[in-house]
Amino acid sequence: MEADRYHRALAELLMQLADDDLVVATRAGEWLGLAPHLEEDVAFSSIAQDEMGHAATYFGLLAAVQGGDRDDLAHLRPAMARRNSVMLERPNGPGTYREAPHFDWAYALARHFLYDMLERVRLDRVVQSAHRPLADAAAKIRREERYHTQHHAMWLRDIARSGPQYAGRLQLALDRAAADAADLASAGPMAVEMEALGLLPDASHLADDWRAHVVLALDPLGWSLPPLGGALNGRHGEHTQDLTRMLRDLGEVYRSSPGASW
């Protein structure tokens, strides 16, 4: 069933895009009011909003393809149905955002940088997707991502040239982020179909492209990309308890009164 295969591959792709952005936006949003510098707090919140907005767009596209409602898709699917990379669901640090958070700005930057590089190479492909509504949305999203790239690059550059005590922190954060990133640049179990059907052109080189971009950016600053790790594969629906807890929060009110208008 060619049409069925197409729809399943498209849904997989949209879920990867939507879930990645929802989860990274939620973690970024937890920094709100707590970023290390007041002006940066405001700037970083825009990045969180952009990503949440992109998630809303992708969930809308998924709802159009599958039927249903974008908020149901965002709030009600259990962890095993989520397709985000495990790296993105990890907390910002020990403690929760409500009580005594020990958030790590170096980790936030490292994770956002690695994800941002993925978004670049992935969006470069998605803008040519055979699913036109997705390709059109991706073209706009890619333009908005420019600020994110520059933002993260600026911080990495400033940290790199501020001295080894700071640069060392960032390398540790990169190590920690990479330890969960084995699934990050993967297009998941239907990658072959996505490529063959033109939904995600050149999906087979996604991981290599990502790595090349990451190394190209890190190398001049004296950092390396550590070996990627992670026993769980988010693209297959394997996740940590961190995601389960996050989903509990995300859907707490929405689930409290099914069908209600908010």
Binding site: Q49, D50, G53, K140, I141, R143, E144, R146, Y147, Q150
Partner: peptide, 9 residues
């Protein structure tokens, strides 16, 4: 302008 592109919010 490209540096300032922002989707509608």
């Amino acid at each position: 302008a490209d540096e300032w592109f922002r989707l509608p919010k």
